[in-house]
């Protein structure tokens, strides 16, 4: 028969008590601490994930805003270009009209000046021509030509006076 030493039983009981005590005061807190640590890490991870997600959303938002700004900038640039073209066209048009007005005024002045000069020249030519004719006639008129002139010109004048007198006499009758 196998005899069981009491000391062995006692040692087993001691061991079991030790295990129970270790489980109660060492293993359980360690497990709790590990769980707590694990939870903390998980929470941190979730927090980081959330922040990462928020950062991504923020990045997307910024990209969208950047695109919108770019589009808006292009639209404004397009409008500015259109306005610049319009202003340029207006300035060119106004300058053209102004130049046309100046040209017309200058042409009108030139025309008036030419007309004036033409009139003066015409008068000068007429004066010179008549004076030359007078001088030529003066040189060529002699007594016999004077006789003819008096005869012809006076005949015409007296003839007119006679016709006029006849008409007046007829009206009185």
């Amino acid at each position: 028969m196998i005899s069981i030493d009491r000391s062995i039983i006692f040692q087993i009981i001691n061991f079991l008590v030790l295990v129970a005590l270790l489980f109660r005061f060492l293993f359980k807190p360690v497990v709790q601490a590990l769980d707590k640590r694990s939870n903390h890490i998980r929470e941190e991870m979730e927090k980081i994930e959330k922040e990462k997600k928020a950062a991504e959303e923020m990045r997307l938002k910024y990209e969208e805003e950047s695109k919108n700004i770019q589009i808006k900038f292009q639209e404004m640039q397009e409008l500015a270009n259109q306005e610049a073209v319009r202003i340029k066209s207006k300035i060119i048009d106004e300058a053209y009209q102004e130049s046309e007005k100046i040209k017309q005024t200058a042409e009108e002045k030139a025309r008036i000046e030419i007309d004036k000069l033409y009139s003066e020249l015409k008068l000068d030519i007429i004066d010179i021509s008549t004076e030359m004719a007078a001088k030529l006639l003066h040189e060529r008129i002699d007594i016999s030509k004077q006789d003819q002139l008096i005869e012809q010109l006076l005949e015409e004048a007296i003839g007119k006076i006679e016709i006029k007198s006849d008409v007046q006499y007829g009206q009185q009758q």
Binding site: A133, L137, I150, L154
Partner: peptide
Amino acid sequence: MLIDCSLRTQL
């Protein structure tokens, strides 16, 4: 009456 039969007037 003035009867002007001069060449000056004609000119």
